Amino acid sequence: MASIRDGENELSILGRKTEYRQDYAPEVLEAFTNKHQGNDYWVRFHCPEFTSLCPITGQPDYATIHISYIPDVKMVESKSLKLYLFSFRNHGAFHEDCVNIIMKDLIELMNPRYIEVLGDFTPRGGISILPFCNYGRLGTKYEELASQRLASYPVR
């Protein structure tokens, strides 16, 4: 039977002193091997303290970022994801850019079967923005899932 410490050598951030990056830092993302590659299942993260900067005004934007994915071989390690999302704090990007950047970085890291990212941004000027993006591996049932989920947006 595999122990909890199996795969520990894949990770360098977990269990060490936390160092926060001051700008966008995709290099902090780490992945580990999925022990249940034969199963389809959801992994969901909710980050209610996401902050980025408006690239025009420099004013802070706040959001809850919702990330849901169906893993394949690799999975994102949660502390590295937290540090990655925190790295947007001083990064100037529009809301729509943030969710697409997050999704693309996670695809590059893990190559999941399916992934979606929703940004639930707090209102500015009386308008809230809820950008949603998703991806399903091309040529698979996950590509069809992506089309169905996008067509049924909004997701909440």
Rank of each mutant, 00 (worst) to 15 (best):
T57S: 15
T57G: 12
G58S: 07
Q59M: 13
Q59Y: 15
Q59H: 09
P60A: 08
P60I: 12
D61G: 02
Y62I: 09
Y62W: 14
A63Y: 14
A63S: 13
A63L: 04
T64I: 07
H66N: 10
I67Q: 05
S68Y: 09
S68C: 01
Y69F: 12
Y69G: 06
Y69H: 11
I70K: 05
I70W: 05
P71K: 00
P71R: 02
D72G: 04
D72M: 03
D72H: 14
D72S: 13
D72L: 08
V73A: 10
V73C: 00
V73K: 13
K74H: 12
K74F: 09
M75Q: 13
M75R: 03
M75E: 12
V76C: 10
S78P: 06
S78R: 04
K79H: 09
K79C: 05
S80T: 10
S80L: 08
S80F: 11
L81H: 08
L81D: 03
L81G: 01
K82L: 05
K82C: 06
L83N: 01
Y84F: 15
L85S: 11
F86C: 01
S87W: 04
S87P: 00
R89G: 09
R89W: 13
N90R: 14
N90W: 03
N90V: 04
N90S: 09
N90H: 12
H91R: 04
H91P: 00
H91Q: 08
G92D: 00
G92K: 06
G92H: 06
G92C: 04
A93Y: 07
F94C: 00
H95K: 03
H95Y: 15
E96Y: 06
E96P: 01
D97Q: 09
V99H: 02
V99S: 03
N100F: 03
N100V: 06
N100R: 11
I101M: 14
I102N: 00
I102F: 01
M103V: 06
K104F: 11
K104H: 10
D105K: 01
D105I: 06
D105N: 10
L106N: 12
L106S: 15
L106E: 11
L109P: 03
L109D: 10
M110S: 03
M110T: 12
M110R: 02
P112S: 07
P112H: 12
P112A: 13
R113C: 06
R113V: 08
Y114W: 10
I115C: 05
I115L: 15
E116N: 11
V117D: 07
V117A: 13
G119T: 05
D120M: 05
D120F: 04
F121S: 00
F121A: 02
F121G: 01
T122N: 07
T122V: 13
P123H: 12
R124Q: 15
R124Y: 08
R124D: 15
G126N: 11
G126P: 00
G126H: 15
I127M: 14
I127G: 07
I127N: 07
I127C: 06
S128G: 07
I129Y: 14
L130F: 08
P131T: 11
P131Q: 10
F132D: 11
F132L: 01
F132Y: 14
N134Q: 08
